[in-house]
Design a protein around this nucleic acid. Sequence first.
RNA 1: GCCCAUGUAGCUCAGUAGGUAGAGCGCAUCCUUGGUAAGGAUGAGGUCGACAGUUCAAAUCUGUCCGUGGGCUCCA
Length: 585
Amino acid sequence: MSSDHHGLEALRHSASHILAQAVKRLYPEVKLGIGPSTDTGFYYDFDREISFVPEDLEKIQEEMKNIVKENLPIEKKEVFRDELRKLLEEQGETYKLELLKEIPEGETISLYTQGDFSDMCKGPHVASTGEVRFFQLLSLAGAYWRGKETNPMLQRIYGTAFFDKKELKQYLLMLEEAKKRDHRKVGKELKIFTFEEQVGAGFPIWLPKGATLLGMIEDYDKKKHIEAGYQEIRTPHLGLVDLWKTSGHYYHYLDTMFPPMERDNQVFMVKPMNCPFHLTVYKNELRSYRELPIRYFELANVYRYEKSGVLHGLLRVRSFEQDDAHVFCTPDQLESELNNIREFSIQLFKDFGFTDLHIFVSIRDQEHIDAGKYAGDPQQWDHIEKEFISIVERMGIPYQIDPGEAKFYGPAIDIKVKDALGRLWQCTTIQVDFNLPKKFGLTYIGEDGAEHTPYMLHTATLGSMERFIAILLEQYAGNFPLWISPLQVRIIPISDDVLPYAREICTVLRKQNLRAEVDENNERMNAKIRKGEIEKIPYLLVVGKNEAESQTVSVRKRHRENLGSMSLEEIMNRMHQEIDEKTIF
RNA sequence: GCCCAUGUAGCUCAGUAGGUAGAGCGCAUCCUUGGUAAGGAUGAGGUCGACAGUUCAAAUCUGUCCGUGGGCUCCA
């Protein structure tokens, strides 16, 4: 038994066949879709009049266990097309027949059989059902047949399987842990953000704690951009519709833009992105090659009409803030600018505690070319893509190609960060654009005295603030590093007589730019400490008569760490150091 | 947008043979002034997501819409 990736794939693929077999045994009327393995497990799609319910999943899982116990050999057989067609017709497997039709003539067709069940399949599989010992069905969902919106909706059953019990258990534990630190849950508990039905789906509201957190991130992000040579600009939330027609967004993304507004014969739209505005800023003056690269930066709210079904906490919203930047440069500067941005991103994420970054290069693919997704001259595309990839090659870092993921105006580098649970989140995007500058008539005067069109780079480093905060919440489960904690320290007076002392300390801390407050509730100290821990406040300063007399504080660090008593100055120094060093704890 | 599930006090949730609602936390008031994860008592909060329909009677049944969740499709 091998536990390499390929082996795991076969194991999971076999698990999906066992799932289908179990479903067929229990519900013979069900028609089969497809059932592949995935990165994290497997699924199988079924067509059945009645919807599966969670209790069905238990029954199916039990039947799967039986099939495993029966230890049926999984046998591969090459079959003739006509023979298989006849069989599938008899069984009424219309979806399988559709697949069969698409297999080119002359290609061998294989059938995998295990006991009373056969499935047309390329494989590979494990040798017998008995090998699939550690599996778990996980969830039920709808899925379009062959992933096409216009096709019927099938019922998908998800599961996972591993070679060893420990790995399965670990995976299930990870899922549980992910649920526990779900940003929607933690964000509510810590009063970071909320959504209100009255306001509308997909419009996040930052509560005071969240606004503080957001503010810290914004300030830092802005400071770093300015250090890196960006100039901050500010642009309106609305613009004339022609702006979007010129950019082409109107034609590519009308469905995801909020509808136009008309007044006095003029049509306005709410911005779904900032690029056109930044292009106009560039155009505001005549540019020389000596000025380039020009780097504009804006913390800007944008609005996109995302379909109702895709909204998901802070990860997918209809109103969000981007740390959006655009770099205008000469073709010669492309490589160094790409490198700058990449390094900038790595640095910024490191400060927030993310060190494992993965690079993805998005280029065109035939399917999307045929669908007319990409704007501009195909030859220029070929040229840019080639250059783009060679630049990434020269960066000397591992990367993956994402075919079909290029933007309509050019190829892109996307940087994904890996979080504490090993999950990848897309954050930074760097997009090369050789289309919009032309469309907007951007030029610079070159060394030769002639007009040239600059390249444009679109980049968002943290991406969307909403999304980034969601990722931070999940990464730290709300236990933020001190420097971004909305509330950094709470003072806990033991009795009312020390309230004046507690307030005095609070004033000092606040004057030192520390986010502090006093818990003045009529509660026992124990209850206040419990509350402070639940709220995940980094530092609790307990003060009673002893502290008031000796002008000290008793310091308790988040997670039960009693650091004993120290002077106010001592704890402030300690906190300032942690803030400066962005310590993670 | 599509399939399925779901929506009861600020929060987490009970409440099935339809008969106008409960708990814990939180909140308020009072008592208590306490050394590192919950001191006690009393009390105020809900037209049971919205709107229609069935019924003598709807939180409970039906429909539509809205929100939320798991996915699919999508993500400039």
